[in-house]
Amino acid sequence: MMLGLIMAIIAGSLVGIQNIFNSKVSERAGSWPTTTLVLAMGFLASLTMGLIFEGKELFNLENMKLWYWFSGLIGVGVVTCMVRGIRLLGPTYSIMIVMTAQLAFALLWDSLGWLGLDKVPFTSKQLIGVLVIVGGIIVFKIGGRPEKQKASVKV
């Protein structure tokens, strides 16, 4: 439990910092050059870490399934939808909707256990927890904060 939470906090903090860095790059170089650069960096870093921790084993892809090769497309979908959503709705409202959708789909995923992950049964406790979080997101995002917030939003 604790390990999972700590890992999630590390991931979230790095995502926050990365978004700021990425938006700094895209201010100058535009969104597609930035997306390409970000993914290139991610690839080089993952490859390096993989080689450090696993050596040659990194290239042992015995259980590889065909669709795994296409999973990287999801990331391209994320960037495209975020950029267009933010352009059409502005950062505050689009991020609010993105976060709510993230949670709703997470809840759906846990309760259905799709793709062979452990099922987490859907309970009223879970629903209440998610609703309280969504309430928090709404208060955070539209509670009297200046609209200018671009730096914190791009994925």
């Binding site: 439990m1 390990l3 999972g4 939470l5 890992m7 999630a8 906090i9 590390i10 991931a11 979230g12 903090s13 995502v15 926050g16 978004n19 976060m99 993230q102 949670l103 997470a106 809840l107 995923w109 846990d110 992950l117 452990d118 987490v120 879970q126 927890g129 998610v130 979080i133 997101i137 955070f140």
Partner: peptide, 16 residues
Amino acid sequence: HIGVTLSISAIMIAQL
């Protein structure tokens, strides 16, 4: 370790 919903929630809070 902790499932999708709890992970995503903690990630979002840390990020914000």
